[in-house]
Computed example of a mutant assay.
Amino acid sequence: MLGAFGSHSVALRPLISRIAIAILQLVSTQLANAQLQNNFHGVSCPGAEFTVRSVVDIALGKERGLGAGLVRMHFHDCFVNGCDGSVLIDSTPGNPSEKDAAPNFGTLRGFEIIDAAKAQLEANCPGVVSCADILAFAARDSVSFLGGIFWLVKSGRRDGNISRASDVVNNLPGPSFNLQALTQSFLAKGLSQTEMITLSGAHTIGQAHCAAFTDRLYNFNSNGSQDPSLDPEYAKRLKLLCPQNNTNPNTVVPLDPLTADIFDNSYFTNVVTGQALFSSDEALFTDTATIATVQSNSLNGFPWSLDFAQAMIKMSEIGVLTGQQGEIRKNCRVINS
């Protein structure tokens, strides 16, 4: 009997091996196709979101303006090859990264906050929480800190290992885009025109360098005049802040002239009254359909904030890497060796 059992066991080994291989392949496929989840790190790194929020709160408590920087950084990350944390990667000799592309260089802020959160998380649970997840949490926490709505961020993103400056310009909407160009830019990322308008409300916080909008003051449409859609008094104030012969490239102006560090719906009121800073902002007030949405958002802040949260959730899931894709970077600035 023992001999008979042993012979069957030997005969079964190839079958058992095939089953084991099949199970491993199934698990591998499931991991590769994994999706983002609420509280993804609940077991592997309890308190991960609390850690990020604490770091963000401390930083913004010292300098509120960094909140806008983190929201903008998340947007710039997601629109260039998906929300994979690639905007955080430093350039190497001969290989300029996204952060050194023209729209980002010298204007993205808050990298040190992501670094600080990552350092704490690596100390608590090494190799678990991606830089891409940290950035998504930090953007949400910034909005909340500045008085905006709080929303649940699904996590489980993996970090990308490619970051090219050449990918940036053609993926990010510019401050001089008209309505059609803006709409197409967002549609290319799976976001509707209404979601584009909703997300534009993030310009209720932050600041901009003079070079991003002075054509509206001195050379609109290259004809040497002022943009007629600008409120005249607002234009006068802007000219004082950004004179035509200004030689300081670091001069900045708040995007919202009244509540630049409060996340509210005043951006839409600014668009209605001609006090929006960029041509791309005022472009939202050039079409009957978009005008109605802008006016509604300016009058109804709470519904807009709910829409903003939903649009941010959708944006934060653009082109994510999950499962076994990408990596979990040890240092957000450097691809793992």
Results as ranks from 00 to 15, higher is better:
Ser229Ala: 15
Ile149Ala: 08
Val272Met: 07
Thr273Asn: 15
Gly206Gln: 07
Leu179Asp: 04
Phe263Leu: 08
Gly224Ser: 08
Ile197Gln: 00
Tyr267Val: 09
Ser163Leu: 05
Val143Cys: 00
Asn219Glu: 04
Ser200Asn: 13
Leu217Pro: 10
Arg237Lys: 14
Gly274Gln: 10
Ser192Trp: 09
Thr198Met: 09
Glu195Ile: 04
Asn219His: 06
Tyr234Leu: 02
Gln207Gly: 05
Arg237Asn: 13
Tyr234Ser: 07
Ser166Tyr: 02
Gly156Arg: 06
Pro173Glu: 14
Gly160Asn: 01
Gly274Phe: 09
Ala139Gln: 06
Ile262Phe: 10
Arg216Asn: 09
Leu258Lys: 11
Arg164Phe: 12
Asn171Cys: 08
Cys242Phe: 05
Val143Thr: 11
Gly224Ala: 07
Asn265Leu: 01
Leu152Phe: 07
Asp167His: 09
Glu233Ile: 10
Ala181Tyr: 01
Gly224Asp: 12
Asp159Pro: 03
Ser130Gln: 11
Ser222Asn: 15
Glu195Gln: 14
Arg216Val: 06
Asn270Asp: 12
Phe150Val: 05
Gly174Trp: 07
Leu255Arg: 06
Leu182Thr: 06
Gly174Met: 11
Gly147Tyr: 02
Gln193Leu: 13
Leu258Trp: 02
Gly147Phe: 00
Ser185Gly: 15
Val128Asp: 07
Leu240Ser: 14
Ser142His: 06
Leu199Tyr: 09
Gln180Asn: 12
Leu146Phe: 05
Thr251Val: 15
Phe186Asp: 00
Ala202Val: 14
Arg237His: 11
Ile205Asn: 01
Leu135Asn: 03
Phe177Asn: 15
Ile134Tyr: 02
